[in-house]
Design a protein around this nucleic acid. Structure first.
Lengths: 284, 284
DNA sequence: ACAATAGTGTCTATCAGACATTATCAG
DNA sequence: CTGATAATGTCTGATAGACACTATTGT
């Protein structure tokens, strides 16, 4: 690289490796965007929010929602703003959802038009009452991210034999840009974070039953969990959930009514709630 | 936000929220840099690689090494290049070290001069024979990141009572820009990753003893671990380490010579090697 | 001899997986 | 009634923490 051994006087500055008087903004101009992998659990199946592209390149292809970071906002603020826009929710409502930075994608050729660096975020939403905001974000849709487990786990316990494992992960057509890669990374991260954080409650409404919480794990991981053992683990973890008084029913139409809980104050899970089986692990 | 309800035809594109014919590069010009949190363990103390700034702002302050992402390289390539430059090692040697993306920092005012988005990376190095590359990176130094544990753990076991816990974390003076924040995030990440990955071997030379590997954990976490239990855990985890034949000594000058091991093929740790005590957890 | 480290083995508390059992609902 | 879910309880195997003990080096 030409910048190598340019002299430590400049290098040690850690920022201005360009010659004195050279305007850095003219030196390396980048566009910075945010891309969002927004997940939710609907009917025991994992869904991701996708938009259909209206212009080249990748016209007509599915893509992750996202957009430019504006001059006076951080990437996190841009992601929150885009989340509100794409879901059609008020900024105040959207502000309550879990949003966390995933990682940044910066391959020089990831956008054929120009140099675009994208900061990817992962958002977890409960199943929203309105299937999507009104007319505005008409082209944004929830698309099933078919894990082959999910309903699989529930159906396996129920004894029926649905199309378990017969579906591929991800939507039918490949996504635009490197969004397929981003989405895969996001899914891996979400699955891993369920193990050692209390993040599963982010998929649930404000009040939920332990059966619903268990279904989140089963849906995301694509496995069946033992209800009594899951219950014991959750209730013995301080601060994971908080019991409520009202005892109506939930979780399907059948069975004994379940007690309601709210998300607790804890964020981390110690010791973690590890996935069963686990073929082989990956680091990140 | 003014861009709200701008029409989904543009929004769904997910990238060009600017008016047609408007050049995006002129619309939002960012500079993109990488910052590196480079850790190593020297003499049972955690050290981080810092540089002294040679110009305003923050003239004379310590900062993380880093620099601009060049027009034709990814952020990861830029980080690898900077790592080679700052450590004074060949690109080939530096390519072997563990380098992973931490997260991206994009607060609008994080650099007083202009809009700079920085992709932060964490690197883990073994204790290098040369205290730092020759004349080139003269102003880069290893600075003790005083955990108050480390030597603390070793001394505690040894029965003496050094300045355990009497040191603060981090260098004496605050770092430039938001590098204090980046460094704290990097340290948290490293400590967490030791729990559920085999990353500790990245701090060790190619051949190491279990005592040296244990010291990595003790140094980073600032705790004392039980040597027999640590040994059992490591050896019963498939693929964590791989035994070698040559049985010379190591780990200080005293005691029985220890068997040598190499890093194994595994990257993840299942089940994890959890930190003792653990006051309260944080998610990321 | 003594200190220090490596390595082996043992005991025990804790925790997760498996699973039986009872309770309470809808149909 | 049957089927489904909630909730409690029990048993057992795996694992981690605590710690005793032996082995092998340098001083």
């Amino acid at each position: 690289m030409s910048a190598r051994r340019a002299g430590i006087g400049a290098a040690a500055d850690g920022r201005a490796r360009v010659p004195e008087g050279y305007d850095p903004s003219a030196f390396v101009p980048f566009a910075v965007t945010v891309d969002l992998a927004v997940f939710t659990v609907r009917e025991s199946r994992l869904h991701v929010l996708l938009v259909e592209r209206g212009q080249e390149p990748y016209l007509g292809a599915w893509a992750l929602p996202g957009g430019f970071v504006l001059p006076k906002e951080s990437a996190g603020q841009a992601a929150r703003r885009e989340l509100a826009e794409e879901t059609g929710l008020s900024a105040r409502t959207a502000g309550a959802f879990h949003l966390e930075q995933l990682r940044t994608y910066s391959e020089p050729d990831r956008d054929p038009r120009m140099r675009v660096v994208s900061v990817a975020y992962t958002a977890l939403l409960p199943d929203l009452p309105e299937p999507r905001g009104g007319g505005d974000a008409a082209r944004a849709q929830w698309v099933e991210f078919g894990p082959g487990g999910a309903g699989g786990a529930a159906r396996a316990r129920a004894g029926s034999r649905g199309p378990v494992g017969s579906r591929r992960r991800g939507p039918g057509r490949p996504l635009a840009f490197d969004h397929e890669h981003i989405l895969a990374d996001a899914y891996d991260r979400v699955g891993a974070k369920l193990e050692y954080t209390c993040l599963a409650t982010a998929f649930c409404p404000a009040e939920f039953t332990l059966g619903e919480l268990r279904q989140v794990y089963e849906t995301v991981w694509g496995v069946a969990l033992d209800p009594p053992n899951f219950r014991r683990k959750v209730l013995t973890t301080p601060g994971f959930v908080q019991a409520l008084e009202r005892p109506p029913r939930r979780t399907g139409g059948r069975g004994k009514p379940a007690a309601l809980y709210r998300a607790g104050a804890a964020t981390a899970l110690h010791p973690p709630l590890l996935r069963p089986d686990r073929p082989e692990g990956r680091t990140e």
